[in-house]
Every structure is written in structure tokens, then in C-alpha cells.
Nucleic acid binder design. Structure first.
Lengths: 323, 323
DNA sequence: GGCCGTCTTTGAACCGATTCAGCTCATCCG
DNA sequence: CGGATGAGCTGAATCGGTTCAAAGACGGCC
């Protein structure tokens, strides 16, 4: 080698510099700088058995909820010298599967996932020694760690608030209902409503949880005419809520006078909306950080006790649901 | 091996199945399924010399502008069987450097970057045979491909529109001014303004381009009192604009009556804002797709002609700047 | 039967960093 | 002075695919 030193020594300089004598170390650093040497991570991984990356699989990168979670994950990961590979599933089980396959081939240290399809693939990763932590959804504490926010409670908070504000016909907008988040938020609202005789809860399902889907739902609502309108709408997330708000406003309806709206997630844009949006807030970054920490704990320790962490959501009331 | 077959054959089944006889192929697939075999990507990479990933380095994942670009990049990359590693720099040159180092170690196929700091590191990647494509910023066509939107034109569009709407004192809000995008958008506006004697353009710099920074700027504006207010504000991006809008509204000022606002990027949330935001729209996904295509073209071809692609932005006028 | 060409399959070299047993040499101690 | 000690360094084995020259199998043809 350039520094008159063996490859073994170079490796030591890079990984355990304290083992190498000062002058040698200096020479090696100098040679590295001079030659522009960059360690080949594949070779290192091959030998060590696993990579220095961690996979994060989310439903939709364009949703600020997930980018905030990703922030949290990234913070924690970077602190430990790990890179994060962000994968987008678009709520498509096939995309999810193909991303998981890729992550398995990469021998990532672990995977954080908000799963759509809990098919065998996740178990497969785990069999292969790759820990998987579920986030924004609880799993089986016997086999996995998970971090979630209590969505049923979130649904209750929203519904309770609307009922207290005097609304008697509430429409839940969101979908697909196969998404656990959507289902549980609905469940929470439903539980509150069924405890009373005088309140009605209906559902309008959407095909996705984005602004366009919300806009479509809002258009349908508006097209039904003023009489068919519910007095309040509870949306499965803020993107949908913003879409509904846009469509209703566009159709000349007033929020909250004609229809009140409550969203979910309390993304930054909720407060900046046409009518500041009431929303159920989740501790997003903390969700990400906690998930990453659980994952790291699992990779480090020999003995590991799986944990379930549940955060409580909080209702933020703004103009869209109060007069 | 389980299928009574050599490793070489397995490799052929995986990579060039047409070379292997039907029955053998079947046996190998069966064995793979039975054993739950997953190819070790590091070993493959080590041999082949490069990975099947591509790095995307952005200023801020939480900015919908970048997630839309990322979408475009991902689409194209996935079509070619590549994974995308999304890196966040938070406008911090140190983070940028460390991400680039990591990507170099990973021997990514290429890097798409919206650079802050064009220090030696990018050239270093290129020397090592890793193509780099700049996006949202033009580079030197002799050494690199780049894709951008004409930010100077965007600035002109915004300023021209405001002047035509009768505004004579315009405030530009954005920063840091070291960001090329910020600078050029300002330049465009400045060029239009200096062509006239009766219009005044001032600048309020922010430390970042997010909602919080915008809110802070808006608070400062509002604190100055009604008399000190400019008649219009042109923001370096929509996040800042939304922040300003929020702060002004909160302070009891009316938009656009007291102050008009024009943003930049036309993110989905701009239309859904408290006062629907006028904004300069950029073809975001297309920017991402084009950048990825240029990168792929460079990796494939032996001979490669570097290209510069410039898209034109488009002004979308909404309520925030028209009465 | 022998030779040739085609289609399959094999097996060993190789990629580059890590790891570790073992070597060297200076120092210290009895 | 001999031997023990340990710091510092070396060099070869190793990880698991990919690649390719070469071997093998088989059929056709003279």
C-alpha cells in the first residue's frame, strides 16, 4: 500500500484507530487523502454480515404525517451512524412486497414499517434475523415491537367534540376501510355515536387518503344538494379534510356554518388552511424516534423484550368546527 | 445445493434464466422457495462493482416540493429496478457532505442532488465514476447534466403580476440568500422592479424556507405596525408564504386587502390555504423524472453528452394577490 | 463409428474489506 | 543475560454471489 502498510492495518485505522500507533495512523490517513480512497461498503457488509442502513416503509411520502415521522427516524438513525432507506408503498401491497424483498436482499439492520398487508413477508424478514418494528399500528407483542397512537381514542375525541358542539348528523370520510387507521378512527367515532340515540353517523369511503380523494368526496357531497348535507364531517386524515374543505368552499358552502370539519394528524398545513382545521394531533416525530429506538435496542441486545408503545392523540380545535 | 445444482447455475437462474434448461430452472426455483433463500446483495455488488440504488439528496423532505420531485425520481428508478435512497440535508453543508460520503461508500449508481455547497465532494464522486445530476439548479454543461426551472423567470412573473395589480412596494421574504433558488427568484423580481422608477423592492431574509421561518417573518412584519407594511409580499417558497399568511391573519391583517402575497412552488396546500395562495408553479414530478432519466442515460451509455434541461415556471393567480 | 456443433452445467477465480492467529521487536524484570 | 510481556503489524482465510473458460451430454451427419 501507499503508506507502506498492510491492508489489515488500514482496516484497523478505519475501524479501531486506538489499536494503531500514532505515526502509522497519520501515514495511513495521509495516504487515504492522497489516493482519494473510499471504503467499499459492499465488501465490508459482506464480511460483517449486515449493512449500516435501516429501511423505513411508509404509505405515502407526500403525506406530511409520514415525512415528520421520517424526520424522527432519521434523527435517531443518523445519531447511530445509520442511513435510512425510505420506501413508498402508495398503499399497494405489491409495492410493499417488492420493497421488503429489496430490503431483505440488502440485509438492512432492521425495518420500520406501517404495514398494509401483514402477509408472510414480515415474518420472513424476522426469520432471517432482521428485526421489524411496526409503527402507527400495534402488532403482536410476542413477536414484535410496535409504536402507535390510539386511533380509537382519536376517533372518540373527534366525535365527542362534534356532538358537544351540537352536531347530530356526522359523516365519516376516508378509506379504504381496509386500512387499520381508517377503521379504528371510525370505530372510535362510532362507539361514541352509538351511545346516543339522537346522533347519526354515516360513511363516505374514499379510495385513498390524499387531497385529490378528499376533493372528490367533497364534490360528491356538494353535488347532493344542501339538504342532503351532514352537519359535520370527520375525515380520516388532514389531506382528505383539506380536499373536502376545498371542494365545499368551491361549491359555495361555508365551513363551519354549513358543514363543520374535523381532520386527523394536525399536519402543519391544517392550521394554515382556508378555514383553520380542527384536527386530532399525533406526536409524529416522537413516533418516529421511538420506533427507531426500539429497533436499535432490538439489534443491539441479545435478550430483547418486545414492547408496545401507545401514545395518546390530542384534539386541537380550530375554526372549522366551532362558530 | 439443495436442487443438486452448482452455485453458478443458481446465479444464472437468477440473472439470466434463458440460459438454463426449463426443468433445472424449475428445480432451482423450488429449492429457493423451500429454503427461503434471499440473495445477498452485498456479495453481488462487490462482484459487479456497483449497487442497484441511486441517491437523492434534497434540502428538506418535509417540503412537498421535494416529495413531489422524489415521486418522479422514484417512478423512473423503480421502472428500472433501482431503489432510491432519500437523504435530507436540512440546508446544512455538513449533513450534505456526510450523506455524499455515505453514498460514495455504497457505490450508488448515481446521485441526484440539489446542492448547497458545490465543494470538491461532487467532483470526487464523479472521479470515482459515479455520475451526478444536479436538479433545481444548473451546473456546468461540460461536466454534468442538470435540470432546473427558470427561477429568474419565476421571479419576474411574480413581480410583474404584483406590479400590474397596482402594488408599488413589494417585500421579498426568503433566505438564506446563499441558496441559489432564493437568490435567483429575488433577482428576477429585482430586474422587473428596477426597470421602473415607481416601484420599491425590499428584502426580509429568513434563516430557512419552512413554515416556522415564514411565521417568524410574518410576526416581524405585523409588529412593525400597519404603516410600515409593504403592499405586497413575494415569498421564496410556499411554506414561507403560508407562514407569513398565518402570522398576518393572526395579527388581524387581511390578505390581500392589507397585504397581497405570492408564493413559489404551487404545492398542493397552496390552493387550500386560508386565502388561496397565488404561486409560481414548477413541474415538480417532471423535474424528478427528467433528472432520473438523465442519470440513467449517463450510467448506461459509454458516450454521454451532458445536457441542461430548463423548464419554464407558470404563475397561478389566486385570491391572495387579487381583489 | 467418429467428428462436430449446440446446449447445459460446472468449478474456480475474483471482488475488497474484516478478522485473527501469529510474528517481530522493544522493554522490563529477575 | 535469558525470558516474559505486550504493543504493533502482517498475511491469509473469509464472506457469498458473478463470471467465464472448459467440460460434459446429446444429436446429427458423413
Amino acid at each position: 500500500m501507499r503508506a507502506g502498510v498492510s491492508v489489515g492495518t488500514v482496516s484497523n485505522v478505519l475501524n479501531r484507530p486506538e489499536l494503531v500507533a500514532e505515526p502509522t495512523r497519520e501515514r495511513v490517513y495521509a495516504a487515504i487523502a492522497e489516493l482519494g480512497f473510499v471504503r467499499n461498503d459492499s465488501a465490508r457488509q459482506l464480511r460483517v454480515g449486515r449493512s449500516r442502513t435501516l429501511g423505513l416503509v411508509v404509505l405515502d411520502v407526500a403525506n406530511p404525517f409520514f415525512t415528520d415521522v421520517a424526520r424522527g427516524v432519521e434523527d435517531t438513525a443518523n445519531q447511530h451512524g445509520l442511513a435510512v432507506i425510505l420506501c413508498n408503498t402508495d398503499e399497494d401491497p405489491r409495492k410493499e412486497a417488492s420493497h421488503l424483498d429489496l430490503l431483505a436482499e440488502m440485509r438492512v439492520q432492521g425495518v420500520l414499517i406501517n404495514p398494509i398487508d401483514t402477509d408472510g413477508r414480515i415474518a420472513g424478514l424476522r426469520d432471517r434475523g432482521i428485526p421489524v418494528v411496526l409503527f402507527d399500528r400495534l402488532g403482536d407483542p410476542a413477536v414484535e415491537c410496535s409504536v402507535a397512537v390510539d386511533d380509537v381514542l382519536g376517533g372518540r375525541l373527534a366525535a365527542t367534540h362534534l356532538i358537544e358542539a351540537g352536531h347530530r348528523s356526522i359523516l365519516f370520510v376516508g378509506g379504504p376501510l381496509t386500512l387499520r387507521q381508517v377503521q379504528e378512527r371510525y370505530e372510535g367515532a362510532s362507539a361514541v355515536v352509538s351511545a346516543r340515540d339522537d346522533v347519526e353517523l354515516t360513511v363516505l369511503t374514499t379510495t385513498a387518503l390524499n387531497v385529490a380523494a378528499g376533493r372528490a368526496a367533497g364534490d360528491r357531497l356538494a353535488a347532493g344538494g344542501r339538504d342532503a348535507l351532514p352537519s359535520a364531517v370527520f375525515c380520516a386524515n388532514d389531506l382528505v379534510a383539506l380536499g373536502v374543505l376545498q371542494a365545499l368552499t368551491h361549491a359555495g358552502l361555508r365551513v363551519p356554518a354549513d358543514v363543520a370539519i374535523v381532520g386527523y394528524d394536525d399536519i402543519d398545513f391544517a392550521a394554515a388552511a382556508a378555514v383553520p382545521l380542527s384536527s386530532v394531533r399525533q406526536p409524529r416525530q416522537q413516533l418516529g424516534r421511538t420506533a427507531a429506538e426500539l429497533l436499535l435496542a432490538e439489534t443491539m441486545a441479545d435478550e430483547h423484550e418486545h414492547r408496545q408503545v401507545v401514545f395518546d392523540p390530542e384534539l386541537i380545535v380550530r375554526d372549522s368546527s366551532s362558530r
